[in-house]
Simulated scan of single mutants.
Amino acid sequence: MTHTTVITKRSLAPLLVPLGAGALVAVALGVYGKAHAPTGFAVGVAGFSGPLAMKAWLTTGAALLAIVQVLSARAMWRRTGTRSAWVAPLHRWSGRIAFLLTIPVAFHCLYALGAQYDSPRVLIHSLLGSFFYGVFTAKMLALPRRGLPGWSLPVLGGLVFTALIGLWLTSSFWFFTTLGIRL
């Protein structure tokens, strides 16, 4: 083994636990979603015309905050040294709120509907939902770890963003273009 090979293997080791935990979360959600008998109801929809509208609007809020996440992460990782003190708190809080907005949506999807594979859109949506929470878990567990490769957090963050936008496209965008924009 060369010196470079040892360094590469050593630097990837801190990612093993976060990626393993994320994979377990994704698989567990997918298995639960498929094995659980859907109830048809899970979350009250106060202020919304129904559960689909609630899910569409909360996911839209999370997707908008995900855009804030990307922009604030870009500002934080800028190498110019001129970043503002408010960027890191904005990044943390927009991520926290975005994640919280997804919880009632995911709960409703899993508990009331379960994982469904009856159409390509719904199949992709179900898979993306499990993937989103898995990669989110991996990112959160990787954040406090030292010795990570420099690319790991941006890649994990990019995967979280991509999964959430994919979820928005297969749910909210579909809802707004099919059923119209309504609360």
Rank of each mutant, 00 (worst) to 15 (best):
G22R: 01
V25Q: 01
H3R: 13
L156Q: 00
R182G: 13
A112W: 05
A163G: 07
Q116C: 09
L100E: 10
L29Q: 03
F136K: 01
Y111S: 10
Q69M: 09
A142R: 00
W151C: 04
T60K: 01
T177R: 10
L148C: 08
L156T: 01
T177N: 07
R121V: 13
W93D: 08
S126H: 05
L24W: 09
A106D: 02
L110W: 09
A53V: 00
A63Q: 01
S171M: 11
M1P: 11
G47Q: 05
V135M: 03
G147C: 06
I165N: 04
V70G: 10
G157N: 07
G150E: 03
L143W: 09
S72F: 06
M140S: 11
L169M: 14
S49R: 11
H108Q: 12
V70L: 15
P144Q: 06
M1C: 12
T8E: 14
V43C: 00
K34C: 13
K139G: 02
L128D: 06
G147A: 09
P18G: 07
V31P: 05
R96M: 15
L52C: 07
L15I: 05
A46R: 06
H125D: 07
A56E: 00
R10E: 15
A35C: 13
F48G: 00
L141P: 00
G47C: 05
A112H: 04
R78Q: 14
L183I: 14
T170P: 01
R96I: 13
A63V: 08
L143I: 15
L148T: 08
A28M: 06
A28S: 13
T2C: 09
T102E: 02
V135Y: 04
G147L: 05
H108L: 04
S94F: 09
W151Y: 11
S49L: 14
L71V: 13
G30I: 03
G81V: 10
